[in-house]
Simulated assay, not measured.
Amino acid sequence: MLAADQEFTGRPWMDAIDVHHHILPDFYRDALEDIGIPTILPGVDKPSWSVDSSLTMMDRHGIRAAVVSIWPGVPPMAPKPAAAFARRVNEYLAGLAAANPGRFGAFATLPFPHMDAVVREFVYAVDTLGLDGAGLISNYGGLYVGDPAMDPLFAEAARRRSPLFVHPTVPPATDQPMFGLPASLYEFPFESVRVAAQLLYNRTLERFPGLPVILPHGGGGVAYYAGRLAAGGLISPPLADRLPADPIGSLQGLYFDVAMTGDPHALAALRSFAPASQILVGSDFPLMPESYTVGTGRFVMEHGGFSTEDLRGIDHANARVLFPRFNGQER
Rank of each mutant, 00 (worst) to 15 (best):
L2Q: 03
D5N: 15
D5W: 05
E7T: 04
F8P: 03
T9G: 05
R11Y: 05
I17P: 10
H20E: 00
I23S: 08
I23V: 15
L24I: 03
L24M: 10
R29I: 09
L32S: 00
G36K: 10
T39P: 00
T39W: 01
L41A: 14
V44I: 14
P47I: 06
S50A: 11
T56E: 15
T56C: 05
G62K: 04
V68C: 15
I70M: 15
P72C: 09
P75H: 13
P75N: 12
M77T: 00
K80V: 12
F85I: 04
V89W: 11
E91T: 14
E91K: 15
Y92R: 11
A94L: 10
A94W: 11
V119L: 09
R120E: 15
A125C: 14
V126W: 13
T128K: 13
L131M: 14
G135N: 08
Y140I: 12
G141I: 00
Y144G: 00
V145Q: 07
A149Y: 08
E156K: 15
R159E: 15
R160Q: 04
R161M: 08
P171L: 02
P172L: 06
A173W: 09
T174Y: 02
F179T: 09
G180Q: 01
L181E: 01
A183M: 04
A183I: 05
S184W: 03
Y186A: 12
F188D: 03
F190T: 12
E191W: 11
V193K: 06
V195L: 12
Q198N: 12
L199Y: 00
L200V: 04
N202Y: 12
G210Y: 03
P212H: 10
V213Y: 08
V213G: 04
I214D: 06
L215A: 10
L215F: 14
P216E: 04
H217E: 08
G218I: 07
G220A: 12
A223D: 02
A226M: 02
G233Q: 01
L239W: 10
A240S: 14
A240Y: 09
A240D: 12
R242A: 13
R242V: 01
D246Q: 09
L251D: 02
Q252T: 04
G253R: 12
Y255D: 01
M260T: 02
G262R: 07
D263H: 02
D263L: 03
A269I: 01
L270A: 03
F273G: 04
A274G: 01
A276C: 06
S277C: 00
F285P: 03
M288C: 08
E290M: 02
T293P: 02
T293C: 08
V300I: 14
G304C: 11
S307H: 09
S307V: 05
D310R: 09
L311H: 03
R312H: 14
R312C: 03
D315H: 00
V321H: 05
F323I: 05
P324L: 01
P324C: 08
F326R: 11
N327P: 00
E330V: 05
